[in-house]
Amino acid sequence: MRICVFLSAADLDDRYTRPAREFAELLGKGGHTLVWGGSDSGLMKVVADGVQETGGRLCGVSVTFLAASARPGADEMVIAENLAERKRLLVEKADAVVVMVGGTGTLDEATEVLELKKHGHTDKPVVLLNTAGFYDGLKAQLRRMEDEGFLPRPLADLVFFAEEPAGALACLEAATSTAAAVGQGVG
C-alpha cells in the first residue's frame, strides 16, 4: 500500500518522534511505500529513515522552493511547481492518508483531503494519528461541526482518529482490504 503521511519537517520532542518512528517501522516492515513531502529534515526525516531502514520504499513529493532539502536516495522524488500541485500529487500517489503532528502546512493538507473526501472526490481512508493528544482540539471542533450540521457526511466516514501507531496502520489495512474486496465483488 502507498501511504501518504502529512507531517512536520521540524525537529520535535521525543514524545512526537518516538511514535512517528514506530509508525514508520510498521510501514517498512509491512512492505508499504511512504508518500511524503520529500524533506530530509525533522520529523519527515525520522519517518523516512524508519520506513527505509525496515524495507519500505520512499516516494517524495517536494516543491521547487524546498527542493534543496529533498531527501537524497528516495526511490522516487517528484518536484512540484507549487504547494497546490504538491498536495494534489501527494494524494494522487497514495492509497491512504495519515496525518501526523505538524504546523499550519500539515493542517492545510489535512483539511484539504477531508474536504475532498466530504465531497466524494476521494474515497481513500484518512487517519489522524493523535500523538500525545495533539489533535484533541481538532477532534472536538470536527465533532461540533458534525453535531451542528456542518458536515454532510458522518465524521466517521471522513476520518478515523488513532491514538497509537499500530491502530493507525490497522485501520488503513482494514479499510483498503475492504475496498479491494468490494471492488472484486466480495462483501
Rank of each mutant, 00 (worst) to 15 (best):
P165E: 14
A175H: 00
V113N: 04
G102S: 09
V98I: 15
V159P: 00
K93G: 00
Q141T: 04
G120M: 09
E146M: 01
V99D: 08
A94V: 12
H121V: 09
K93Y: 12
A110Y: 03
D157A: 11
F134Y: 13
A132F: 07
E109R: 05
R88S: 12
P165C: 10
L138Y: 09
D123I: 11
L129D: 09
E115M: 10
Q141V: 04
R88E: 13
G133I: 07
L107K: 03
A166I: 13
G133F: 08
E163V: 05
V113K: 03
D136M: 01
L138H: 00
K124Q: 14
D136W: 05
L89R: 11
A170H: 07
S177N: 06
Y135T: 10
E85T: 15
M100A: 10
D157Q: 04
L172S: 02
L169S: 06
F134L: 13
P152F: 02
P165F: 12
G149I: 08
A168L: 11
V101W: 05
H119E: 10
K87S: 07
K139L: 03
E92S: 11
L151D: 11
L142T: 02
A156H: 00
P125M: 01
V126N: 05
V91E: 11
E85V: 15
D95L: 04
L158I: 08
L155W: 06
A170C: 04
A162N: 03
L128I: 14
K124R: 11
H121D: 10
T106M: 13
A110I: 07
G167T: 04
